[in-house]
């Protein structure tokens, strides 16, 4: 039965929508202001492209975010699958471990984990990937766990195994595609957090997009807001693109079949 929204539901939706969208609209408008706050222009966006250090900082952030995503999925998908399949007794412990990063201050993490990190890694920006994996764990664990609970995991694994698949093939060919939305969600949470993380990068003296943007903001405040808006919408664009990729692929295949 189709449920119609009552006035109270509509009010809540409009209020929540306004609460969510208003800051973006305000920031968007601010990023378009001209010199001295007069008029509206895209100059702040073109300004970014001409700034020294923007390209390397962006590439560093993208590289770190990409590696963090891969590292986290590589670590978390098998772990959550294991917990769901047979390791229920470990579930509480793993859940607590995954929630710890929320309560541990970033400064403690930076100092404590830095000491524990192998020397070779301490000198490269890839060190940040390991910190970002820790920071993102709580969100990724929950997302993947929910995704796996929505499918008949034990039956799918048993079916795949009885058909001759090894556990790795089952994971790659059946489980990950079956939880595509959850995997994408986890990937984008990690990507977004890694792209926007400032405190750890500045504490450990790495030059990423957020640290560069903070420096640039001292020169052009409108430009720094434009950077934030730009990176936010880039991530959103990628999210939408990847979400629709299978549908686009399917449509193209259907077209190909019709043509042949």
């Amino acid at each position: 039965m189709k449920r119609t929204l009552g006035w109270s539901d509509r009010t809540i939706l409009i209020a929540a929508g306004f609460f969510f969208i208003a800051p973006f609209l305000a920031a968007g408008e601010y990023s378009l202001r001209g010199y001295g706050g007069k008029g509206h222009t895209f100059a702040n966006y073109t300004w970014i492209l001409h700034q020294l250090g923007f390209g390397p900082a962006l590439l560093t952030s993208l590289r770190i975010a990409g590696v963090s995503v891969l590292l986290l999925l590589f670590l978390m998908i098998p772990t959550v699958v294991y917990v769901q399949l047979g390791g229920r007794r470990w579930a509480r412990l793993i859940e607590i471990l995954c929630l710890l990063p929320i309560v541990i201050p970033v400064v403690s993490l930076a100092i404590g984990a830095q000491v524990a990190m192998p020397k070779r890694l301490q000198s490269t920006s890839y060190e940040l990937c390991f910190f970002y994996v820790i920071i993102c764990m709580p969100y990724v664990y929950r997302t993947l766990n929910t995704g796996l609970q929505a499918i008949a995991l034990p039956t799918l694994v048993e079916a795949s195994s009885s058909l001759g698949a090894t556990p790795v093939k089952t994971l790659v060919l059946v489980i990950i595609p079956a939880i595509r939305s959850a995997t994408l969600g986890a990937a984008f949470i990690t990507f977004a957090i890694s792209m926007g993380e400032y405190a750890l990068a500045v504490l450990l003296h790495f030059h990423t997009l957020p640290t560069w943007a903070t420096n640039a903001a001292q020169e052009n405040l409108y430009g720094s807001v434009a950077i934030s808006i730009g990176s936010l919408f880039s991530v959103w664009f990628l999210l939408v693109l990847f979400s629709y990729l299978p549908a686009i692929k399917g449509a193209l295949q259907n077209k190909k079949v019709k043509v042949t």
């Binding site: 039956t155 048993e158 079916a159 009885s162 001759g164």
Partner: peptide, 17 residues
């Protein structure tokens, strides 16, 4: 995975993807 046994399950077990 090495027994070469075909199995049909009680629960629907088709791979959704």
């Amino acid at each position: 995975n090495k027994r070469n046994i075909g199995m049909v399950f009680q629960a629907y077990s088709l791979f959704p993807n």
